[in-house]
Design a binder for these strands. Structure first.
Length: 558
RNA sequence: GGACAUGUAGCCAAGCCAGGAUAUGGCAUCAGCCUCCUAAGCUGAAAAUCCAGGGUUCGAAUCCCUGCAUGUCCGCCA
């Protein structure tokens, strides 16, 4: 209902003032929304803004469109307080199992995320990509878009050559129960170490890259077996985090199906293209990018950038919006890609960048073996959650405690990541990761479990009639926040900022907890009890729907 | 050296793009609340030159400029 009311008030103010921008702001403590349009009118008309605000408020209040909204002027502000009818309509809407689902759209979206090199396990930096990406995928679905989540799999680059070299020469045994990605990374770290000590072996990597480029069967098999083993482990990690891709796209496809050669031919004809023997690069200095954008090496082999161009054209052909989630280290190549696609008259992807996650001791590096894996993080978090639930609910059997601990752990990890806006770099801190109080998923899950518990108890005492008469301030504040959920979903996909949803659901849990404390439900009587139970149900449903978009399980008991 | 991002109480964040009312939360600290719907909860106290300096504006945490600090990138790697 929130959106509808805001639109209604905007239209009303435009009509009264004749201003295009009626300067709607959040009303804070004073109102649900407010307008500061009196300030700008005061300047134009050289009058006191408070007098103008008073006049606008008076006119607005008399219009039939303002029904159910209390309009008043406080100094230069025109304040709008939504009435009980608004709360009632909102709560009624929030009882729908599909609450927050926006009308179906036809624009097909391809959202690419994670796409980590298969040279080792995902670490706590990689999963920032996964969590942002997967949350966006879920938000787009909630917003009515058909979405395909893709993982672009580097199965042939230099990093993979290093892995393959390691697998070929090191002959490690796989430890009992060792995941594929953990096994592969040992080769990668050791091969990098050897390469540093003996730079003379470098030509061996170059040779392997030329072999795979040429499609040498044995090399292809070596590369792909290594990649597949690693991906097997990565998939387990992603599944544990509730992150799902619809399609894995292998980079080699674009080399072998001719797409890359086609796009290179097109790009090669641009005036910005520079050729020197086989070497080809773009001079984008006219577009504010000073670095050479190399697309073919002087030995004729291809580079990642060229295959990436082909990949994006391929995506364009099957969607209306293409969105990539990339680490901030990709900003340069991201803008090179966008610029180049625009130059050949093709659609550029929208790119969501996120800044780095580092450790207290410094940057993470897969190559150097310095990282905390997502698996380790999840295991520690689950251990901690299990301790907690064992203290709180000793009567539960082990299987239930394990199940709850897993859901709490996944939630805690995902929420910690998604709640921080993407443009902030962060430092990983175990203390924060393992803190399950407030501003965390368990806090929100707990509010949901409380709602379920109340409804469960009410059911034992018989049925209740839905009632939408809210008057208590705690009831109204909660109902009004519930009303905003569909608006938040829309904001997340418009701004590509999933952390807005994390902030929203935390505020919702805050308001529910205050309501829980100050407005007794089961002990209330008659229509008040009915109304509060109705509100609890709407809260439960909204918390559950919001958590679902965040990829976090809404536990019924914990 | 150049480019991008960030800088908000001891610590971590929201707010900034679309300027407006006493700057919003959490952690840590202190003081309270379980004969009462799960205390992973609630209430209160204390804590901020919104990095610094200029500018625009009736009004700046928010917009612009300069500087400083931190992170990232600047490869015929990905």
């Amino acid at each position: 209902m929130y959106r509808e009311y805001v639109h209604k008030i905007e239209a009303l103010l435009r009509e009264i003032t004749g201003e295009e921008d009626v300067l709607i702001t959040d009303g804070g403590d004073h109102a649900d929304i407010a307008s500061t349009v009196a300030f700008s009118l005061a300047k134009k008309e050289r009058k006191n803004p408070a007098a103008i605000a008073a006049k606008i408020a008076e006119m607005a209040a008399s219009l039939p469109e303002a029904k159910g909204v209390e309009v008043s002027a406080k100094g230069p502000y025109v304040n709008f307080v939504f009435g009980r009818e608004y709360a009632a309509e909102s709560v009624r809407a929030a009882l729908s199992p599909k609450y927050g689902q926006l009308p179906a759209r036809t624009e097909r979206v391809i959202l690419e995320h994670t796409s980590a090199n298969p040279n080792g396990p995902l670490h706590v930096g990689h999963i920032r990509n996964s969590v942002i990406g997967d949350t966006l995928v879920r938000a787009f679905r909630k917003a009515g878009y058909p979405v395909e989540a893709q993982y672009y799999l580097n199965d042939m680059g230099r990093q993979i050559a290093i892995v393959a070299w390691g697998v070929k020469h090191l002959h490690y045994d796989r430890l009992p129960g060792e995941k594929g990605d953990d096994f592969i990374v040992r080769h990668y770290v050791e091969a990098n170490k050897i390469m540093k000590e003996k730079p003379e072996i470098e030509p061996e990597f170059d040779a392997m890259m030329e072999m795979i480029e040429a499609g040498d069967l044995e090399t292809v098999r070596l590369f792909h077996d290594s990649v597949d083993l690693c991906v097997e482990g990565i998939l387990e990690t992603l599944a544990a985090l509730n992150v799902h891709h619809d399609r894995f796209v292998r980079e080699t496809i674009f080399l072998w199906n001719g797409d890359m050669q086609k796009v290179l031919a097109r790009v090669g004809m641009l005036p910005e293209a520079q050729h020197d023997g086989q070497l080809m690069f773009l001079d984008l200095s006219g577009r504010g990018i000073d670095n050479r954008y190399v697309l073919r090496r002087s030995n004729g082999t291809s580079v990642y950038a060229a295959r990436d161009l082909a990949f994006h054209l391929w995506k364009n052909a099957q969607c209306d919006r293409s969105i990539d989630v990339l680490g901030a280290d990709h900003k340069l190549i991201g803008s090179q890609l966008q610029t180049t696609l625009a130059m050949i008259g093709e659609r550029s992807p929208e790119i969501v960048y996120f800044e780095f996650v580092s450790l207290l001791e410094g940057a993470m590096t897969t190559r150097g073996g310095v990282f905390i894996t997502a698996d380790e993080l999840l295991a520690e978090t689950k251990k901690r959650a299990l301790e907690e639930i064992t203290v709180r609910r000793p009567e539960l059997n082990m299987a239930d405690r394990e199940r709850i601990a897993s859901a709490v752990a996944v939630g805690a990890v995902r929420y910690d990541i998604v709640q921080v806006s993407a443009e902030k770099s962060t430092v990983f801190d175990w203390k924060v990761a393992l803190d399950f109080e407030r501003q965390s998923a368990p806090y929100v899950q707990y509010a949901h479990a409380r709602a379920c518990s109340i409804l469960e108890k009410a059911k034992e005492e018989g049925s209740f009639a839905e009632n939408y008469t809210f008057s208590d301030p705690y009831e109204l504040a909660l109902a009004k926040h519930i009303a905003r959920f569909p608006y938040v979903i829309e904001m997340v996909v418009v701004e590509l900022r999933p952390h807005l949803l994390a902030t929203y659901v935390r505020d919702l849990a805050d308001l529910f907890n205050s309501f829980y404390r100050f407005a007794p439900v089961l002990r209330a009587e008659g229509s008040v009890r009915d109304a509060r139970l109705t509100l609890v149900d709407a809260s439960r449903n909204t918390l559950s729907a919001a958590l679902d978009v965040l990829g976090i399980e809404a536990l019924e008991s914990m």
